[in-house]
Design a binder for these strands. Structure first.
Lengths: 252, 252
DNA sequence: TAATGTGAAGCTTTTCACAGCC
DNA sequence: GGCTGTGAAAAGCTTCACATTA
């Protein structure tokens, strides 16, 4: 079985914040930061939930895993909650991050402003292609991927981002792990396998679009969204494994 | 209450594929496509599950929502399953997509190869900045965002991608919706609100990194991952809403 | 015999609704 | 009076384990 992502067992019985909650904390943090910038001092669970796009019950339950940071009858102190959520997420320091792959995606990531403002710092932008090495990207110089170990050692990098083509992703992941990186954000459209103890998260543009397409198709049922077929090969059921005739009433 | 994303009620009782399953279908499709390219004709749930990074039980359960496309004692016909999953996702046609925002992210998205090969086609790359209009990106010419309505009408675009700065995102979303787009993939780090019936999915780089940071921090507990503090403001509990002294044994 | 398809059990997440506190 | 914090119920998702079938 391929080892991939291992969210530290959510239900470590009692202790531990549910994974679903962890995934929403960054959203709350962004909403809170925005409120703080607008000068809002206090916010109710209702108002914050609206700003974050969740229900107030969910928000309160989520925050309750961190502790009791609100005041009944009043709400939450924005600055204080920003601090608590940041601390919980481990953002009391700027994490150095190494990006491997200086193609257009790597460039875009390196130039992404939300990086610096939200707890991260690009320690290096690396590429295996000599023609890209030396390129200047937003004050950063593309270095050869051979420098990976040096970068990780010098800056105690724990998080790596893979922005290479799919074909190179596994090898890059191996290098990252070997160099000591223990968390990886993978933009390559391929499953990478890593040893126990290394976390991997995946972002796949096509997957997101395909999920949208699924729902879009259901809305449009009948009204063709485009003109004609283009993508998929043939409907041919191959040799003979097709039991059901027409796949309609799919039901359980 | 802000209307945001509305996954067509997963549990429409009996009918309908669970949202969690829908989100994995694209992953299965990618694994299947890869197997097909390698010339594999038949695959067991075990092998496919490994290739997709899930358990075989989950895979079988997921596929069972689509119908009975396997053969007991044998497995699944790869080509046939590719077709069935594609059809379920609505990928029997190439969906035209409009990208708004021709900054480095917009460029990267427009040049993303996985786009064309996985069911989508960039109908247009738009930007509000006149200095970007006319730029050539991979055979595509950046057009002014005023052309949005024309593009949507001419190519029956249903899906839009927002790759603008956060400040412009809501306005762009409004324009997309007004033009007739009913599915939006939002890369801007801000919550956009849209009317009922429009689906929104979000991709936020910083959120993904922050989730990784959370787990990374837990692993490293004790071993400082970097040198010192940089990001967050002050620990000051503000005026007086702090009930708990030290936030440690958070437990329920 | 080998591997799918699926009820049923177990777990996680969400929602409800209200006691408790400011 | 208003709003948080949280048990309890409901819904959703995953895993188990095995009857079923080619």
């Amino acid at each position: 079985m391929t080892a991939v992502s291992r969210p530290p067992r959510p239900s470590a019985k009692g202790r531990g914040i549910p994974e679903a909650t962890v995934a929403r904390l960054p959203v709350y943090l962004r909403a809170l930061t925005s409120l703080a910038e607008q000068g809002t001092a206090t916010v109710s669970s209702d108002a914050l939930a609206t700003a974050a796009g969740v229900t107030s019950a969910k928000l309160r339950k989520d925050l309750s895993y961190l502790g009791s940071y609100g005041t009944r009858g009043v709400g939450y102190d924005v600055d204080y909650l920003v601090y608590q959520v940041s601390r919980e997420l481990g953002l009391t320091q700027a994490w150095p991050v190494v990006i491997v792959g200086a193609g257009s995606l790597g460039h875009a990531l390196a130039r992404y402003g939300g990086f610096a403002s939200r707890g991260f710092r690009v320690a290096a932008l690396l590429d295996a292609d000599e023609t890209r090495v030396g390129q200047q990207v937003d004050g950063l110089v593309v270095r050869h991927v051979d420098a990976l170990q040096d970068v990780v050692d010098a800056e105690a990098v724990a998080i790596g981002v893979i922005a290479t083509p799919a074909a190179a992703a596994q090898q890059v992941a191996d290098h990252l792990v070997a160099a000591g990186v223990t968390s990886i954000l993978n933009f390559a459209p391929v499953l990478i396998s890593v040893p126990e103890g290394v976390d991997v998260r995946k972002v796949d543009l096509a997957v997101e679009l395909q999920i949208l397409a699924f729902h879009e198709q259901r809305k449009a049922r009948g009204g063709a969204p485009t003109h004609l077929s283009v993508a998929v090969p043939e409907p041919e059921p191959a040799s003979g494994p097709v039991p059901a005739p027409e796949p309609e009433a799919v039901g359980r």
